[in-house]
Design a protein around this nucleic acid. Structure first.
Length: 889
DNA sequence: GTGGCTTATGCCCCTTTGGGCTAT
DNA sequence: GATAGCCCTTTGGGGCATAAGCCA
């Protein structure tokens, strides 16, 4: 056993070192945290400004005389121990690092990629549900009396209940199969053993419904990475923890898996205590044989076992528990224990008759033992009044897992036109769409994307399951991208599930109502910029356009469903807290209006929240200054008073001060007058007269858009137009198209000119001629340049040849050329004697020492040079002994 | 536990219209 | 002398979203 606990703290100058020992499997590693911050106190606080340096120390040098923590028995633990020799100062405020634009962009990319992957996965599952072999196998398992359901002409939700119950009894969630297995094979295996992952079991239920010829979708909650950078901290940990216990607790096993697990634990407990708290008949709570239950790891079992063991203790014993135990047992755990039995009774068919037995055992899980949890249960029930199954916050606090997969079956017997019915066969819940959100919320999950798969197509049905859209809307990707992704898939889905249904008069009315609402909301979407609301409404609009060509009394299911979802969007209940109105897509309160917003018209009042009147979001109008409206191609009507006067920035004040007395719009210095769209009219600029372009005070035309052009003028966006129009004597004005920041100041950006329309053709013709002439000149110039360069090249070659002829035969000694004076390198072949005339020097090179190597490259160092003023000759020497003499002319 | 309110923080939008020097 | 081109330096104030803390 080694001990590696030598800690040291260095202070070099103003750099602070914080040492950390990491011990892993007897291998001591030492890391040093270097803070570059000068301020020592700050260095401790700024966790981001640290550099980690790899390092290690020999184990022999490790001593035990450590002032800090000694770590013993490390080898026994076989784990990783991290020591800090300075504890973080918790009293000091933690520095907040906010996500940068780059972080957000990255998170968005990850979010999108994850969404696409999950959609692809869903399509795989959907395709597997269509497997005829699997469907046939499931069909063969069905008892005869359930086969009659498929014969019903009008399918209803009630008719599905026995089917869901049968499936619930025969198929169970258990440890997931190998991940690298194709889903079809995994599904076949799940069918064989009548159990599998939540996804597989849900897919089997979909396959069963399809085998019965029901129009069925596989619905999945896309548990996608967060759109916010690093916002996954909690969620990620939850995700991990969820994955860790995936084998028994994941996803739609919200209650069933837990029940099964606890049932096994209870059995063990009962066996150990010599009594059975449940019926000893050998059948499960849900009526299935225990032999079919999944194998569960001992660790998980023991966890659940211990959990139930605690809950099985008498109340008095629990109350006498030590304070430590009280700390360990959270409030949520206690509540969980108490709710466990209720949850079981709510989900298990035979639970009611077992409940008294459980209660009689003295378990604190009986609701009679505590009132506080009951209040919470009551509260959740109030939130979901239609729920027949109680979903406890305690279960959620333990993060058992949110429902992620289920089926949707189209029931033509529901309503007048049919309805998509939620069927969670795994939990034997039929038509429980209102419970999904509550269950997900209890598990700290939000239903950001609920999508239905059918026929390899995809449809977003989040609206059906999410009542509080305003809560999830900011967590979703922008609707434009999402709609574009789903558009082709939606067509596929519609084709697979579509069917003509009679459209009644009342539906037509509601359609019209939605159309009106849609147009309002789209207007509102413009004001909001990123309108999440419009995503469903736009789809409705598109589909309505398509369906408008059909018979007025018939419409397809898809369109009707779009209408239903859009109706839900328009009928979202008023939130009860003020914060929710801040960016609510439908409602607004005056308190949260921004500086440039106003309520117009101020009504109708839809309700009140904490004394604040609630208005439709469509009443929120965006205000602009006169100048800003000009950019939009609008001008403020005459005699219009500002709707709002706000304080201006100092720079604006300065600008207004320069403008002098033109403060009538604002009334006083330092304020800006704002006007709404209803106070404006299309821009009416003075028209061009007699070929003269009307200009502003700077002698130019501000072309923010085409709307800003004076009547009778045209904007030509070509370079080098000014000389042309000057030559033609045409009046023009430079077109300023915007600003850019350069050299610390904003600089106007000009692009082209503005001329009167009547000169357009003439100018363009002249411009074309001018450009042609310019190009011709340019071409000629390039030709001249090329000729000149060729002449220089050929001349130098002739001179070189002449020099060679003159000097080459007369030289006795070897000559070398100096190709590059700057590098002072000479490539020498050993046999060639080269004289090169290089202006302004003429270098006569003579080798004083014949060298041996054929490819030696001489390097003439400056230090080795000598200069003879008498002969005006510079002698350069190479280390190899070769020297050259350069005669300077 | 939830909601309301305040405060701190930091991202990001809006604002906006040169001048001196040098080569040609 | 006129003109064209290059280079200098790299806003900054406020709105607003968000997180955290405190309190009811």
């Amino acid at each position: 056993m080694e001990n590696s606990t030598t800690n040291r703290k260095k202070n070099k100058g103003k750099t602070k070192f914080q040492s950390v020992n990491i011990i892993r499997d007897n291998q001591p590693l030492k890391f040093r945290q270097i803070t570059s911050n000068n301020d020592e106190d700050d260095a401790l606080n700024h966790d981001d400004d640290v550099i980690w340096e790899d390092g290690c120390i020999p184990s022999s040098s490790i001593s035990n005389n450590n002032n800090n923590i000694n770590v013993d028995n490390v080898a026994q633990n076989k784990g990783v121990t991290i020591e800090f020799d300075t504890l973080p100062d918790l009293s000091k405020k933690k520095r907040i690092r906010r996500a940068t634009a780059e972080d957000k962009e990255f998170a968005e990319i990850v979010h999108k990629a994850h969404l696409l992957c999950l959609i692809a996965r869903g399509r795989l599952v959907d395709a597997a549900c269509d497997d005829p072999l699997i469907q046939a196998a499931l069909f063969s398992l069905l008892p005869p009396h359930l086969l009659k359901i498929s014969e019903a002409t009008k399918l209803t939700a009630n008719a599905l209940s026995p089917l869901a119950s049968w499936f619930h009894q025969h198929f169970h969630v258990r440890s997931p199969s190998s991940a690298d297995k194709p889903f079809n094979s995994a599904l076949a295996s799940a069918l064989e053993v009548q159990g599998g992952s939540p996804e597989e079991v849900a897919a089997l239920s979909v396959a069963l419904f399809r085998a019965l010829n029901f129009t069925t979708r596989f619905v999945s909650v896309l548990d996608v990475a967060s759109l916010k950078p690093e916002a996954d901290g909690d969620e990620a940990s939850h995700f991990e923890s969820s994955r860790e216990r995936k084998d028994i607790f994941d996803s739609s096993t919200l209650m069933v898996s837990k029940i099964n697990t606890d049932w096994i634990s209870s059995m063990k407990l009962s066996a150990s205590n010599g009594k059975n708290i449940y019926d000893t008949s050998g059948t499960s709570v849900s009526g299935t044989k225990r032999g079919q239950l999944p194998a569960i790891t001992e660790d998980k079992d023991s966890l659940a076992y211990n959990q139930l063991k605690k809950s099985d203790q008498p109340v008095s014993e629990t109350r006498n528990a030590s304070d430590d135990d009280k700390c360990q047992r959270r409030k949520g755990d206690l509540e969980f224990e108490m709710q466990l039995q209720i949850a079981m009774s709510a989900t298990a068919l035979e639970a009611p008759k077992r409940k008294p037995e459980a209660s009689s055992s003295g378990s604190p899980s009986s609701p009679l033992h505590s009132l506080s949890p009951l209040k919470k249960i009551k509260r959740i029930n109030e939130e979901s009044p239609s729920s027949s199954h109680v979903i406890s916050t305690a279960i959620g606090s333990r993060k058992v897992g949110a429902p992620l997969y289920w089926a949707e079956v189209y029931c033509s017997g529901e309503n007048m036109t049919g309805k998509w019915v939620h069927v969670d066969a795994v939990n034997a819940i039929v038509d429980g769409e209102l419970k999904v959100e509550a269950a997900a919320a209890a598990c700290k999950k939000s239903l950001r994307y609920v999508v239905a798969f059918a026929g390899l197509g995809v449809k977003d049905v989040t609206r059906r399951y999410c009542a509080k859209w305003y809560k999830i809307s900011p967590k979703r990707i922008d609707s434009e991208w999402w709609d574009a992704v789903l558009a082709p898939l939606k067509e596929l889905e519609s084709r697979a599930t579509g069917g003509m249904v009679p459209l009644l008069n009342q539906d037509i009315k509601s359609t019209n109502m939605i159309e009106e609402g849609k147009s309002n909301e789209l207007n509102q979407g413009r004001t909001l910029g990123k309108s999440s609301f419009s995503e469903s409404c736009v789809n409705v609009g598109k589909d309505r356009q398509k369906s408008s060509t059909r018979s007025p009394s018939f419409d397809c299911r898809s369109t009707l469903e779009d209408m239903e979802l859009a109706t839900r969007a328009l009928t979202e209940p008023l939130p009860t807290n003020q914060q929710a109105y801040r960016n609510h897509p439908l409602y607004a309160i005056e308190k949260w209006l921004t500086k440039y917003q106003i309520l117009y018209p101020k009504g109708p009042i839809l309700g009140f929240c904490s004394g604040h009147a609630v208005y439709p979001r469509t009443c929120v109008q965006t205000l602009h200054t006169k100048e800003r409206w000009l950019r939009e191609g609008m001008q403020v009507k005459e005699n219009e008073l500002p709707s709002k006067v706000v304080k201006s920035s100092s720079r604006n004040r300065r600008g207004q001060a320069i403008e002098g007395e033109d403060l009538s719009e604002g009334g006083s210095d330092g304020v800006v007058s704002l006007f709404g769209r209803w106070q404006t009219e299309p821009l009416c600029l003075p028209p061009a007269v007699d070929g003269i372009v009307p200009k502003n005070e700077r002698g130019q035309v501000d072309v923010w858009s085409e709307k800003c052009l004076p009547p009778g003028t045209v904007h030509l966006r070509f370079p080098r137009l000014v000389p042309v129009v000057k030559r033609l004597g045409i009046n023009f004005a430079p077109a300023m198209v915007g600003f850019e920041f350069r050299n610390g100041r904003s600089v106007p950006v000009y692009e082209g000119i503005v001329i009167c329309t009547e000169f357009r053709e003439a100018v363009l013709e002249a411009y074309a001629e001018e450009e042609h002439r310019r190009e011709e000149e340019e071409r000629k110039w390039e030709e001249r340049q090329a000729l000149s360069r060729w002449y220089q090249l050929l001349s130098s070659m002739v001179i070189r040849q002449r020099l060679n002829n003159t000097y080459m035969n007369n030289l006795e000694s070897e000559t070398v050329a100096e190709p590059s004076k700057s590098q002072n390198k000479v490539s020498c072949t050993g046999t060639e004697n080269v004289n090169q005339s290089t202006a302004p020097h003429q270098e006569t090179v003579s080798a004083t020492n014949r060298f041996d190597t054929q490819s030696h490259e001489h390097i003439f160092l400056t230090d080795e040079e000598s200069y003879d003023e008498g002969s005006v000759t510079r002698t350069k020497r190479c280390r190899c002994g070769v020297s050259i003499q350069v005669e300077e002319l």
